[in-house]
Design a protein around this nucleic acid. Sequence first.
DNA 1: TCAATACTTGACTAAAATACTGGGTTTATT
DNA 2: AATAAACCCAGTATTTTAGTCAAGTATTGA
Lengths: 161, 161
Amino acid sequence: MRLTTKGRYAVTAMLDLAYHSQKHPVTLTDIATRQTISLSYLEQLFARLRKAGMVKGVRGPGGGYTLSRGAREINVADIIEAVDEPVDSTKCGGKSNCHNDQPCITHDLWMGLSEQIRAYLKQITLGQLLERELVSEVAKRQAKLSEQVIDIQTLQERKTA
Amino acid sequence: MRLTTKGRYAVTAMLDLAYHSQKHPVTLTDIATRQTISLSYLEQLFARLRKAGMVKGVRGPGGGYTLSRGAREINVADIIEAVDEPVDSTKCGGKSNCHNDQPCITHDLWMGLSEQIRAYLKQITLGQLLERELVSEVAKRQAKLSEQVIDIQTLQERKTA
DNA sequence: TCAATACTTGACTAAAATACTGGGTTTATT
DNA sequence: AATAAACCCAGTATTTTAGTCAAGTATTGA
């Protein structure tokens, strides 16, 4: 899970879209001027968001983009993953030479942390952000999270086994 | 708060250091070979980490780097912020033209989210990662977090006031 | 002292990602 | 038909990443 300006652009644009596309589709030109993002860059981002099934394009005059689901069904992690290139970050992936090795331990530690962040962003939806329920909503789900979350200790034990 | 490969390198290297520098200082050459990171790149990263006061360099034969504090006193957010360029991400900063404006609302929404992530990573220390207490430790602090966390609603109200 | 060790600094560079420009084509509305 | 919009590419400037190279400086052990 990376967190770059690209992801920020995507989330910002999706927030703008969610906010304005209640009745009519919203054109990328509108979002571009409101959020001061270049139109063509938005086109690139929305091409990916469309492929990921998060937005629907409506062609022709009066067209634009709408969310393909409710704002409450779209979470931040999915938006970021849709526009970001999938990062391998494995560096040892399936290689057998990296076995019970030091690099792999710290690698697993990072992976576990990264997974935590992803799980965290997965709980936060556009709807929550717009409705400003973020704090309470997230707080409510934290108990659940601590059980769902990837168990690093298990990962470690698999490695040394 | 960005989350890039650069930050990952830094955290990985710091984990390696925390793990190995219990008795003697650890040379960057050792970390470089263990974690397969180029020595000179590590030098760049550790120059920043040293300036941030997170590590101490020990010169001369038998020298190397050690943590300047206990592993439990060093959190992941600080490591990442030490090596990453400070991202402005304001885009409207102190400009008065961005007042009660649409861009600023979504901007604030993103800032609030970003702050949440930072607060989250701030709770996670090298010590926890090494001791594999991550899941339970974090779970314990979640109740506190929900109160400390930045209140987006307040931010919004300041804006429209 | 002297030499080995290791940190420090800076300039430079290749590669990748980011952000953007500009040209189109297609589709649907009026 | 004219227009407004999505959609599609090819290219490109900028920035960041990750690394190389080279010439230092400081410290310690023998």
